[in-house]
Simulated assay, not measured.
Amino acid sequence: MAYFKPDRYFSRLSQISIEKDILGCGFENVLLDIDNTFVPRDTQVIPRDARVWLGCAREAGVTICLLSNNWHKVVYDFADEVGLPIVAKAMKPCPPAYFTAMRKIGAKRKNTVAIGDQLMTDVLGAHTVGIKAYLIQPLVEQDLPHTLFLRHFERVLMGDAQPEAPVACERGEEVRI
């Protein structure tokens, strides 16, 4: 059951403190899911708070690789827009894409955390390869049919777990990407 238990649980990406929750926990690298973690699945527009978070992470020297099961051109365009490396068609929770993403950014397991919105893909995949996993609530409820089906199991596994209390970005200002 520990494979499905996130190491930390947050309401949004922007609630993860770069200083305390990333660097303060010994992480230098982040494997970041895209759909419903960094951008809403319904709009594909980066929320302002996610842009601020990314800017804070970059300023702090955190290295990020996007890791997505999505295979459409939009995720590659998105990676270009934000200037981040990407491993798409990841087939999470299968391990190979995690190792590929870590190789792309020169990461080691001990200093890498995966951040995503799904237990069955993001958390399970990270734990399978021996890295920590932070779960966030999905940005929107709209999702693919198979993902909505898996969300029922996630609710059972999470029980009455609540996200950690919110924090603000250390700098509190938007950094242009």
Rank of each mutant, 00 (worst) to 15 (best):
V74I: 06
E141D: 13
D77K: 10
P85K: 02
G172N: 03
E173D: 01
M158G: 05
H127Y: 11
G26S: 00
R12E: 03
V52M: 08
Y3A: 09
W71D: 03
V62N: 09
Q142H: 13
L144H: 15
D49M: 05
R151C: 05
G106R: 04
A50D: 00
H152R: 11
L148A: 11
D49V: 03
V82C: 14
A90V: 06
T121D: 05
K108N: 10
H72K: 08
L124H: 10
A161V: 10
P95H: 07
D143A: 10
A2I: 13
G55F: 02
L150A: 14
F149E: 07
D143E: 15
P138K: 08
L139T: 07
Q142W: 08
R58W: 11
P40Y: 01
L66S: 02
T63Q: 13
R109P: 04
V175Y: 06
I22E: 00
F38L: 06
M91K: 15
C94K: 14
I34K: 03
K108R: 08
F149P: 01
A60C: 03
I86F: 08
A60F: 03
I34R: 01
D122Y: 15
A161Y: 05
H152T: 07
C169W: 02
G125R: 09
E28Y: 06
D35V: 02
G61V: 05
A161N: 07
V156E: 02
A168I: 13
F27Y: 11
L150Q: 14
R41K: 15
F78P: 06
Y3G: 09
Q44T: 01
N69V: 03
A90T: 08
L157T: 06
H152Q: 13
P95Y: 14
Y98T: 08
